[in-house]
Computed example of a mutant assay.
Amino acid sequence: MSEIKTQVQFVDIDEDMAGQRIDNFLRNQLKNIPKSVIYRILRKGEVRVNKKRVKAEYKIAAGDIVRVPPVTISVQDDQPAAPVSTNLHKVAELESCIVYEDDHMLVLNKPSGTAVHGGSGLKFGAIEALRALRPQARFLELVHRIDRDTSGLLLVAKKRSALRHLQAQFREKTIQKYYYALVMGKWDTKCKAVNAPLLKNDVNSIVRVNPQGKPSETRFKILESFKEATLVQASPITGRTHQIRVHVQYMGHPIAWDDRYGDQRFDAYTSKFGIKRLFLHAANIKFVHPGTEKAMELNAPLDKNLENALSKLRQA
């Protein structure tokens, strides 16, 4: 057994921090501390705002002074509290994947196989790695998520105001995202969009087209046709779990190397061209910058494995 010890902190709340619940604020301040401990110190009154006790639902305001008490917890030696440190080479590699950064936000070209955050048995994710790369950053939060095996553009807010601004754009569907996907067979040139409601199974997280599901729309454009495959551009209008993957499967054209919704025959075919991962890549995103209010467009190139595979498909 070993211990994690934190020091007492006095945090002056500014406009950018204001508006969040105190429990969420503490979870950002005490990154390696379990939620149960955070709620316990709140119940005991060890957390003070302006020298007064507060409940978990209290929303901090600009000008508040928050006392974050010292915390000591025991952890198993075979489960280190900061697992990112055991993946330093992977963390360092993410530095070269940053395609844009300023005072408001950071944009990552996330590699396939890297989860956006830790959990479900995973030691760490992209957000934990970015926090390790930017230890001086007071705030780093995911704006949205993409699947672990999907590569491409991932927005990360460096200010709470930027997070609110960008998430509002997602809710209002003003952000445009474009993915590249290699799908099985010949995509119908007349199929420009798929409108099919999606329902997620809460037990196994499998998503299916179901009349009882949530309205879902994805727009498609053919980029390149091959003998037994098609490279399509997919633009999700709604943001459902596994939306693109399920919509193409529903149309009879699953994505190469999709372990949930794919076709092993197509995987065997594409492996001849060197493909060994899900061929789904978030290549382009358009949004309004949360600080300047100017329109922005960012692009992320395909990795070398997928580019080489496309070259071999063209030759074939």
Rank of each mutant, 00 (worst) to 15 (best):
Y179H: 04
Q264F: 08
A196L: 11
A268E: 05
G262E: 01
M251R: 11
L182N: 05
W187S: 10
A268D: 03
K177P: 15
Y250D: 09
Y178T: 04
K177C: 10
G185F: 07
A234Y: 04
L182V: 05
K286T: 13
L223A: 05
I255H: 03
V194Q: 10
T241H: 15
F220W: 12
S271K: 11
T218Q: 10
A256T: 04
A268C: 00
H281V: 09
T218G: 13
P197L: 10
E224Q: 14
E224F: 03
S205C: 12
T241G: 13
I285M: 10
V232Q: 03
A282F: 11
D263C: 01
R208P: 08
K186M: 12
L198F: 08
G274R: 01
T189A: 15
D258Y: 01
N284F: 01
I237F: 15
P215E: 14
A196Q: 09
A196H: 06
Y269G: 02
T270V: 09
Y269N: 01
R240Q: 09
V209H: 08
A229D: 08
K221I: 02
A234T: 07
S271E: 06
K286F: 13
I255K: 00
P236A: 03
A234P: 00
E217C: 08
F226L: 13
Y269W: 10
D263Q: 01
I244E: 02
N195H: 14
A234M: 12
Y180K: 00
T270A: 07
D263I: 00
K286M: 05
H247R: 03
N284C: 07
K200G: 06
H281N: 09
K192L: 14
I237Q: 13
R265D: 01
K214P: 14
S225V: 11
E224K: 04
D188P: 13
D258Q: 05
C191K: 13
L223R: 12
V209T: 07
N210A: 15
A256D: 09
S205L: 15
V246S: 08
I237S: 05
L278G: 07
Q243M: 10
A268G: 00
P211G: 14
M251I: 04
V209A: 14
Y178N: 12
Y180H: 09
A181G: 12
V183I: 13
K186T: 12
V194R: 02
K177A: 09
S225Y: 00
